[in-house]
Every structure is written in structure tokens, then in C-alpha cells.
């Protein structure tokens, strides 16, 4: 059988897509801050386009503002680092040199949330979605599988303006297939149901799908909305679904403060007040741990999702 996209690590697909884009567009630049192997662009992009691979060293703030300057000159820099260093570490640089200046810079946060695993609290960032979402001009994406990631990266290159994307680095089970097309203005209805609305994004979508399938066997049907774009946020699909089900559960690989759950509550409280249960990390820092342990401790694994939906 030939190789399928979901057999690859997410980071390999990131690198491959960036190379394809760079083959066609001489303005595409790959930027790194001494974590290029972790992002998957080294050796792939480095070998394919050595002249357009810019390593800023361990200097994330410099990387972001270099990218801002390059964008002013017509380049399209993609800047990657671990999520904490690509976002909160450089929050003012991104705010001013990218968002406020509205430069065409793309920021890639790798190993989001609990996927930072054994590196622990310093590297486990739970608030990047919230803080990036709070920034005017910034678009915030979190694809769930390789098919969606590839489409998001292509869209980012074509879109003129700042974009932040979360990139979980390892293999992810396929939620979509080759036919997938990305639309930042549209949530994807992964399952159609009438009992409860389940809202997810990025890394958590695979677990939400599992929960929805298992609930279906119990006779509970889930309206499962996956948001590849948390900003812009498709309010219409959510409101329509909430009107139908009257009950909403959100789940994210982030703090429940200000991220996807925040966006859902903001939307519903102003448009169609509906009870919402937010699953994710409560107001806590990260720690060295496995995924299962953190799911259990904070209550946002498959079983918890099912329980909240019942």
C-alpha cells in the first residue's frame, strides 16, 4: 500500500508542505530558533532550500522581529518554536512587530499543551490560544490531523496577514482524508446529532470523535463541531447547534480560561444563553506527566467527555 499522509508525523507534513510552497514561491522563508529538528524542518527544509532557512539561534524575540522586517520586504516567514517560546515568551514582539504592524508573519507553536510531556511545567503551555486570540489582527488555528494541517499551512501562505498555528509534532490518527479543504470561517461538523453539542479543536478532536462514537452506541447523538480556526470563530454554526441541542460541552488541550471554551461562552452568552461545560486544564500550570495522567487529573479524557455529554 502506498504511503498515506496520516502515516507521517505532523512535523514531517509541516516541513513537506512548506517545501512544496517554497518550490513555487520564492518568498517563503523557514525560520527557526535552535529547535529545527523538533519542528521537523531540519534536515528536510534545510536541505531543500538552504538559502531560505534562517536560524535565529536561541533568540525567539529576535526571530519574530526579523520575520516582521522580512515581511515588510515581501517575504513570508514561518517562525517555529515550542509553543511557550513562540507565544508568551515573545508576546510583545508578536503584538507590535506582527499584529499591530499587521505584517505577513506566520507563527508555528510546536508541542502544544500536554503534548510537551516530560519537559514539564516550563515547556507545557496552556494559554497560547487564549493570549494569541486576544490579539487584534491575529488568526489562531489548531488543525487536528495531517490532512487539515497541510491545508492550513497552504492557506496561511496564501493569506496576507499574521497567523498563529498550533502544531502537535507526532503522528495523529486521521479524522479527515485527501478530500479535506480548509475554510477558516467554518466549523467542521464531524458528527451530526441532536442531544448535545460537543465543541473541540486541534489535538483534542481525535478524543472527541472517539467519545461521540461511543456515546452513539449508548443512544446519545452528539453534534460534534471541530474548530480548526478558533479565530475567526464561526459563531453561526455554534448558535444553530446550541438552539437544537440546548446543551454544550467544550474540550481543549489548553486552559479553560480564554481559549476555545472562552470563545464558546462569549458567543452563546451574547446570542443564545445555553449551559456550557468547559473541559481542559483548570487554572493550573503544567508538570512532568503522561497524557493519561493529565486527562485523569484534570478530567478531560474520553471518559470525562462522555460523562459531560450525558
Amino acid at each position: 500500500m502506498s504511503e498515506q499522509l496520516h502515516d507521517l508525523e505532523m512535523r514531517a507534513v509541516y516541513a513537506r508542505t512548506l517545501i512544496e510552497l517554497a518550490n513555487e514561491n520564492p518568498n517563503i522563508i523557514c525560520m527557526e530558533a535552535d529547535l529545527s529538528k523538533a519542528s521537523g524542518t531540519n534536515p528536510a527544509f534545510l536541505t531543500a532550500h538552504p538559502d531560505r532557512f534562517i536560524n535565529a539561534g536561541v533568540a525567539e524575540a529576535d526571530m519574530i522581529c526579523i520575520a516582521g522586517g522580512m515581511a515588510v520586504e515581501g517575504k513570508i516567514p514561518f517562525c517555529a518554536s515550542f509553543t511557550p517560546f513562540a507565544t508568551r515568551r515573545v508576546y510583545d514582539q508578536v503584538t507590535i512587530s506582527v499584529a499591530y504592524a499587521n505584517t505577513n508573519v506566520k507563527i508555528v507553536g510546536t508541542a502544544p499543551g500536554i503534548t510537551a510531556g516530560p519537559n514539564g511545567g516550563t515547556h507545557m503551555c496552556f494559554q497560547d490560544m487564549a493570549i494569541m486570540r486576544a490579539m487584534p489582527n491575529m488568526i489562531v488555528l489548531s488543525p487536528c490531523d495531517t490532512y487539515e494541517l497541510r491545508e492550513c499551512i497552504k492557506w496561511m501562505a496564501a493569506h496576507e496577514g499574521p497567523v498563529y498555528v498550533q502544531l502537535s509534532r507526532m503522528k495523529q490518527p486521521a479524522v479527515f482524508d485527501e478530500s479535506y479543504r480548509f475554510n477558516p470561517d467554518k466549523a467542521v461538523k464531524v458528527r451530526e446529532g441532536k442531544d448535545v453539542t460537543l465543541v473541540t479543536t486541534g489535538y483534542m478532536t481525535q478524543f472527541a470523535v472517539k467519545a461521540a462514537n461511543e456515546l452513539a452506541a449508548e443512544g446519545i447523538t452528539v453534534d460534534l463541531l471541530h474548530y480548526p480556526s478558533v479565530k475567526p470563530f464561526d459563531t453561526a454554526t455554534l448558535i444553530e447547534s446550541a438552539k437544537k441541542t440546548g446543551k454544550v460541552v467544550t474540550v481543549e488541550n489548553q486552559s479553560i480560561i480564554g481559549g476555545l471554551g472562552g470563545a464558546v461562552c462569549e458567543t452563546l452568552s451574547e446570542n443564545h444563553p445555553t449551559p456550557v461545560k468547559r473541559l481542559g486544564i483548570p487554572d493550573k500550570f503544567g508538570e512532568v506527566a503522561t497524557e493519561d495522567y493529565l486527562f485523569g487529573k484534570h478530567g478531560f479524557g474520553v471518559e470525562h467527555i462522555k460523562k459531560a455529554c450525558r
Binding site: N119, G121, T122, H123, E287, V288
Partner: peptide, 10 residues
């Protein structure tokens, strides 16, 4: 680097 260890990753 074990869960709950005081020897955290960093």
C-alpha cells in the same frame, strides 16, 4: 521526570 517527582524536567 516521573509523575509527581520533585525532580522535574527542569
Amino acid at each position: 521526570r516521573n509523575i509527581n517527582s520533585h525532580l522535574q524536567g527542569h
